[in-house]
Amino acid sequence: MTYMIEVANLQKKFNSHTALAGVSFRVEPGEIYSYLGPNGAGKTTTIRILTGLTRSDDGIARLNGYSINDNPLEYKAQFGLVPQHTNLDADLSVQENLVIHGWLYGMARQEIKLRIDELLDYIGLIDRRKTLVKRLSGGQKRRLLIARALLHRPKVLFLDEPSVGLDPAIRRSLWGVIKKVKGEGATVFLTTHYIEEAEFLADRVAFLDAGSIVTEDKPAHLMSQIGEWAIDTLQSKHIRSFYFQTRLEAEKWASVHEGEFTLRRVNLEDAFLAKTGKKVG
């Protein structure tokens, strides 16, 4: 099996703080692989190392067979990056930002022009091509970042907390775009601390805590390991959750206990809590 992303024993320290303590994972072509973890778990450090923005202290990273250390330029040509913060030229237009990106990736002028038309149509900004980036809304800027990352037809798309700070409606439309990207064959590596984002988008999820991958699996498998249903109850000013395989078992448990209960389905937050003893958000 040829993996699109291969990472082995990635390590990074910032002074005495260990940001990554030997992370390893592999992602298949066309897969959406999500990194789920709280702030400071090492999500952004991983993505920065994988996109060449930060050097690792040790470990191997390969994209489509190219090593970041041995073939850095070929490696970089394989991916597109949507960073956590907006890094567009605000004083330039939508089109100018995209043209600069095309030139950076050695695309021909005609190809850039055609691809810009295609992508602006794709993200719903076709009528804003001459608009200065500073006049776009937050959601439009996020979509433009995705279009820019896709301009050179990368094999891998890195998304670092793509929907942070966006309202729920815009977040949903962004998820639609990411699904579409996967539908066209790209491999997606996504970091997030939004449970629903990982549940909705990811084929596989890795739980990251204190610079290490605690576990990785399909979201449904991770959740089914602790049950199907959860009951939340307030105990000594803290919410405590109990997990059950069936709704009937949960209701039976509630009927013999006192207090106020909330019955709900198990989510990835529960699975994360069960594995790490911590909450994601």
């Binding site: 996109t51 060449g52 923005l53 850095p72 330029l73 070929e74 490696y75 970089k76 040509a77 991916f79 990056l81 960073p83 913060h85 907006t86 890094n87 567009l88 030229d89 605000a90 990106h101 950076l104 990736y105 050695g106």
Partner: peptide, 18 residues
């Protein structure tokens, strides 16, 4: 300005240019 304010330098660092 590009580096600290707009973070554009990261776009260049991630691109396949020397």
């Amino acid at each position: 300005i590009a580096r600290f304010y707009w973070h554009i330098f990261e776009e260049f660092q991630a691109a396949p240019i020397s």
